[in-house]
Design a protein around this nucleic acid. Sequence first.
DNA 1: GCAACATGTAGACACTGTCAACAAAAAGGT
DNA 2: ACCTTTTTGTTGACAGTGTCTACATGTTGC
Lengths: 227, 227
Amino acid sequence: MGVVKAGAKVRTRVRPTARPADLREACVQAAREVIAERGVEGLSMRDVARRLGISHQAPYRHFESRDHLLAEIMRRCFADFASYLDARPRSADDREDLAAMGEAYLAYAAAKPLEYRLMFGTPWPAPAHHAGLVADAVHAFDILRNNLRRQHGDAPGMQARADLDSMFIWSALHGMASITRSQAMDCLQLAPGVGAAFKDYLMRKIGAALEVPVDPGAPPRRKAGRR
Amino acid sequence: MGVVKAGAKVRTRVRPTARPADLREACVQAAREVIAERGVEGLSMRDVARRLGISHQAPYRHFESRDHLLAEIMRRCFADFASYLDARPRSADDREDLAAMGEAYLAYAAAKPLEYRLMFGTPWPAPAHHAGLVADAVHAFDILRNNLRRQHGDAPGMQARADLDSMFIWSALHGMASITRSQAMDCLQLAPGVGAAFKDYLMRKIGAALEVPVDPGAPPRRKAGRR
DNA sequence: GCAACATGTAGACACTGTCAACAAAAAGGT
DNA sequence: ACCTTTTTGTTGACAGTGTCTACATGTTGC
């Protein structure tokens, strides 16, 4: 407390690295770098401040808490993710487009595993439920859902069918992305070639499941040969 | 350092709660309680010690680090999980048995969401990769894999097919469990009834996908009508 | 009884998120 | 111009964490 007084004044002037103009933006960027390098649990407010050469409390002028910063980053990840899906090679045929979407989904998960985990593998911080985060997340899901709705038409009940198919596809894709990311397959001593063939096999199984008509209302009978 | 000497001696004698006999076991139990209540990130070594009325360093006599404690807990979760799967209602028919397995899988994930997340949603701590943990985890997977191997027989190449099917099923189940646990569906404004019908629909889609023969070697053609 | 060892304790250290008090600077009104 | 208000950044705390070291205690084998 009783330190040199004038020293502080000088220090603000002889600051080694220029203080970023838009500090809020700089915080987000620095935090995203940390997350991309070391994952969510490696993110610390003080570390962000340190990287920017500012005091450990400065970020709190722009984000109420660590969770608020995290929520903002998640929001941007969802936006990135959605535009990644939007950038897929387009096709007029809805089925081919769906396949391209699946490829893009898995490619994103493979390319940015830590961001993927942040969005889909981390429990959402409480402040996340309010902001535009939900909107951005839903928008990503809607890219998938809209395709299925086009394929199913809008006859009564078909909206629910499209949603169910969307959830099924999402489950399979997310399951694979999540399992692959965890490297669990390394432990399972799978038969040779399985690791390499997994993605295509899964995509084709999804396609096959979509071909077969399945009545959502019917009782959960097993050995469903035909219907 | 220079504190009262005799005081410490007395305190050990007038200990309020009896020190647990098997401290290692007590640590594991206390830690599992914390995890079941507040999740992995809520687990703290000092909290465990506090609950047991011991010093904050005592647990370190039995676990090298927090990660080692976590690894031991994960190991037990996998063992629990495997015996949960083993306790499914048995059926002589492999398909019915497979369905029962799927139900058991999802029931476990729903009943113990935090343990499920610990096993399948948290990056494994380094010490987890060595011990019997992997063996317990693989054993759980083998319950699924063995069923598929029985169904496919042991003709050449069928082992890989069984592994691929296992991975596909696991992906879909894990995806659903993971998505359901995240309560993401609450945000998606799904058509009415979709939430309730999701599980059965997914199980039937998996069944349908397994019926349709899919050649793992074929090129990833779309619109796969028949082959 | 005594030495070796296992176990539990106490006190540090560096780190975290966050609160409160303060200083500087920018904005706005006159 | 000056003065006030608000925004922004800094400093110093506080309680919490994992883990190191040093110490005390209890247990076991000789």
